[in-house]
Every structure is written in structure tokens, then in C-alpha cells.
């Protein structure tokens, strides 16, 4: 689904990604963990094509995308949920939900989405600026589920949210797995990540420094805590 090899990325003059290698197979949920500033979000932005100064190789579903603009990457069937949620303040909930164009058949219908996120239905006419953090996050995930994207990039979906909401998002991710979608997740909340992910990559200073499979987690917990500085 995704193969990244030797990815370098730059913000202006500063070199942020130093040769990232990772891969995600179809149907997997893979998490990138790491401290703040390790380059996790930048990696997602590079995959999406939002980070323009990048080199190396990014293959999405077999297509080389290192030179493609974001809209072409999205059209391959990639759904992006940015760290800051990216809810449009001047659009209401329904408009936000319906904004991303359909990328492929098989996306969730509006009814399915409202069943999964009941409070979005209640707030259908509210402006995007009036939503709570949790509602914004729900909406940000919901709107990419509608598009039929087969591969989702989720950037810190639990950041700054109450435990109840984190649990709800956990259930959403389970639904996503049931629908056999592929997910690349960036997460600081390792307990959340451990619950939903098949594999983990550990990132530090713009590089992948370790890869941990699901079965190894228990044994490697100590090492992980060291990486994350918990």
C-alpha cells in the first residue's frame, strides 16, 4: 500500500527528514511513534505531497508520488486527517462532511457515518467554528471515510481529547479496520496506539530507528518507554 524509501524532507532551509524508510501493507494499521519534533507529522505531510521539498521514493499503491501534487496523491485513494483537524470555520458540519470529493466507490454512506458519529447528525447545521475539539476530530475522520479512500493518514487523532472521546475514536478505528482500510497513524498516546495497531515504527531525528511488531510489544515496552522519554 505504501513504501517509503530514503525519504528526505525540508522546511525551507532546514533538513527535517533524513532518509525515512517504512512500509505499510494493505489492511494494516501502522503507527509512527516518537517524541515531539521527530518528524512524524512531516512524514505524513511528505506522503500527502503537502511538504513540497522532498526527495527519495514514496510509492502509494504502486505509484511513485514523490513528484505529485497533493490533489493527485489524494486521487489515488488517500484520505488525510491533519493534526489540527482542518475543519473549515466558514462551512457548516454538513458542508464540511460533503466537501471532499468521492475518490473511489465503497465509501461510507451518510447514514452509516451518522450511525458511527451520532452527535454530528445533531449538529449538522452548526458552523465548523462552533464545534468542540472532539466533534472536530470526529468530523475530520468522518469526512475522509465518506470519500471511499482506501488508505488513511491520521495525525494524532487523540491529541488533547478527553478519555471518553479517545475511547470513541478507538471504536471508530476498529470499524475502520473491519472495513479493511489501511491506516498510517501518528500518535503520542502509546496506549491508544498499542490497542489499535498491528505494527509500530519508532522515529527519532527524522529517521526510523526501530520497528516493533504487535507480538513484540509486551517484551519491548521498556525500550519503547525509553525512546519516548516517558
Amino acid at each position: 500500500m505504501l513504501e517509503i524509501a530514503g525519504l528526505h524532507g525540508f522546511y525551507g532551509e532546514s533538513h527535517v527528514l533524513h532518509g525515512v524508510d517504512l512500509s505499510v501493507r494493505a489492511g494494516e494499521v501502522v503507527t509512527i511513534v516518537g517524541r515531539n519534533g521527530a518528524g512524524k507529522t512531516t512524514t505524513l505531510r511528505a506522503v500527502m505531497g503537502i511538504l513540497q521539498k522532498r526527495s527519495g521514493s514514496i510509492r502509494v499503491m504502486g505509484t511513485e508520488t514523490i513528484k505529485l501534487p497533493p490533489e493527485r496523491v489524494a486521487r489515488l485513494g488517500v484520505g488525510y486527517v491533519p493534526e489540527e483537524r482542518g475543519i473549515f470555520a466558514s462551512l457548516n458540519v454538513t458542508e464540511n462532511l460533503m466537501l471532499p470529493p468521492t475518490l473511489a466507490p465503497g465509501g461510507m454512506t451518510t447514514e452509516e457515518i451518522y450511525r458511527l458519529f451520532p452527535n454530528l447528525k445533531d449538529r449538522a447545521k452548526s458552523q465548523g467554528s462552533k464545534l468542540t475539539g472532539g466533534e472536530q476530530q470526529m468530523l475530520a475522520i468522518a469526512r475522509v471515510l465518506r470519500t471511499g479512500a482506501k488508505f488513511l493518514l491520521l495525525d494524532e487523532p487523540t491529541e488533547g481529547l478527553a478519555p471518553v472521546i479517545v475511547q470513541q475514536i478507538g471504536r471508530v478505528l476498529e470499524t475502520i479496520k473491519e472495513r479493511n482500510l489501511t491506516v498510517l497513524l501518528v500518535e503520542q498516546n502509546f496506549r491508544f496506539a498499542a490497542r489499535v495497531s498491528d505494527r509500530h515504527y519508532v522515529m527519532e531525528s527524522g529517521k526510523i530507528i526501530d520497528a516493533i511488531g504487535r507480538s513484540e510489544i509486551a517484551g519491548k515496552m521498556e525500550r519503547l518507554e525509553e525512546y519516548l522519554g516517558v
Binding site: G49, I50, P69, P70, E71, A74, P82, F88, P100
Partner: peptide, 16 residues
């Protein structure tokens, strides 16, 4: 309207 607010994200949704 969305592109007026955040053009990059709108591109990331597949809109040119």
C-alpha cells in the same frame, strides 16, 4: 470558501 481558508488541505482532499 474552503480554499479561501486552507488551500493546502483542500488540495489534500483531491481538489485541484
Amino acid at each position: 470558501r474552503a480554499a479561501t481558508e486552507n488551500p493546502t488541505l483542500v488540495r489534500a482532499f483531491g481538489i485541484n
